[in-house]
Design a binder for these strands. Structure first.
Lengths: 230, 230
DNA sequence: AGCTTCTAAAAAACCGATATTTTCACCCCA
DNA sequence: TGGGGTGAAAATATCGGTTTTTTAGAAGCT
């Protein structure tokens, strides 16, 4: 929600929260992503105000800001709510992510430099080191790794879109909860393979691996979704 | 800013404005797009409040909402401002538009039906009929035509992105003002050709024509930009 | 019963005033 | 003469309460 030089993206890490609006923004964002505020839930100002121990103004403003990220929907004169989830929406996000991240990754690799490469390796290391039983921390590392892949892309707007789509997707991942661990795949190996292709500057291979990675996780999640909803 | 069934896009036409926030939102949006609020301009709450004859709260909220569309930037504790323009930013928008609208147009054509086709013809007719001396009205029709091309795309998020990019681009068009009319091209013919290819369900041809159309307008505008900025 | 109309409670939207932060011109001093 | 502190003015952020709108349920009509 704030502009700063490093992070032109919508949903990336921002500077340390100071204002009440900032605090509310981050808290609400987190609650929505991890599903503490359920999909389709009505977001009553007064309830949230008490829960976050702050005034109505910061809450309203934080909610308005969250519409930027499509994590909150605004209904004129009827307040706010979290977006509904659906199989169709999930598939849409998945497809778009594959297309846009493909673009971003190719650009990122084309402009790659040593600093980018080192940052990528670091992000990968941190992700693998993070114990998977702390889902929230692991998901943060996981996002950092995927964003590190794209980080050198020259289009801030595209990066912002990717970031946004990533977060929209995250809600579905949290919904699946520990079930994500039950996949019969070696996720770590997939991540490593993507990184290696990127470091070798092999854009075709990296993009192919990344896309497959998303689609496999995607079909696993879609399966769970269909189980749950019908 | 409001969710309604017809228009899932960020920047499309909404229902009739009723609340003070809605009114302020639309007014500010227009002022930014047509350049009445200059690029990089600081947006002081109190000034705008008086100008729009409304309270500070609706103004603040409208500005927060406009960050959704990337038409306003928020600086924590230091208020709001309109985004700066630049040659790099313009090029970035142009490239992304070509990529994303290509995707959307192909999808739209693939799912095309009679209603879509008729709506497209109508939009085209309205655009050609609109006198070009009223830039603002013409630009509205122009946008409607281009969005009509994409309207059948099944991805609301992608449409939202396209809509957003279109509006980001519009600021540059208004900046050029009447100069856009001085191009040595038959814009009307280009539009018609795009429409015809779309109606014939020739996605490759339509997309190619659309992309060229954007790039030609783009290089004309880029030329003007470079003239102005040095 | 099914459908509208009315009404009270709940919630959202809004305003005006206050508290907090930033800005900037000014001054001091090395 | 320029760097760094200082304080008043300006602007933002926030609060608490008021107005307006929506909602849901009860009553009345066909």
């Amino acid at each position: 929600m704030t502009i700063d030089g490093q992070s032109p993206t919508a949903a990336g890490p921002r500077e340390t929260p100071t204002s009440a609006t900032q605090t509310a923004y981050h808290a609400l964002r987190r609650m929505i992503l991890i599903g503490e505020l359920a999909p389709g839930e009505k977001l009553k100002i007064d309830t949230l105000r008490k829960r976050l121990e702050t005034g109505a103004s910061p809450v309203r403003e934080a909610l308005s800001l969250l519409t930027s990220d499509q994590l909150v929907e605004r209904l004129d004169q009827r307040g706010f709510r979290t977006p509904e989830i659906s199989s169709a929406n999930f598939t849409e996000i998945l497809r778009l992510r594959c297309s846009l991240e493909d673009m971003a990754l190719r650009d990122s690799i084309a402009r790659s430099d040593q600093a980018w490469e080192e940052h990528l390796v670091l992000a990968h290391h941190r992700m693998t080191r993070e114990p998977r039983d702390n889902i929230e921390m692991f998901e943060n590392r996981h996002k950092e790794f995927h964003m590190a892949l794209l980080a050198n892309c020259t289009s801030p707007i595209l990066l912002r879109f990717c970031n946004q789509l990533y977060d929209l997707n995250i809600r579905y991942r949290y919904l699946a909860g520990h079930a994500l661990g039950y996949q019969k795949r070696d996720i770590t190996a997939e991540h490593t393979a993507i990184m290696e292709a990127a470091i070798e500057r092999n854009a075709d291979l990296a993009s192919d691996r990344l896309t497959r990675h998303y689609q496999q996780t995607g079909s696993f999640l879609a399966g769970l979704l269909d189980e749950q909803t019908g």
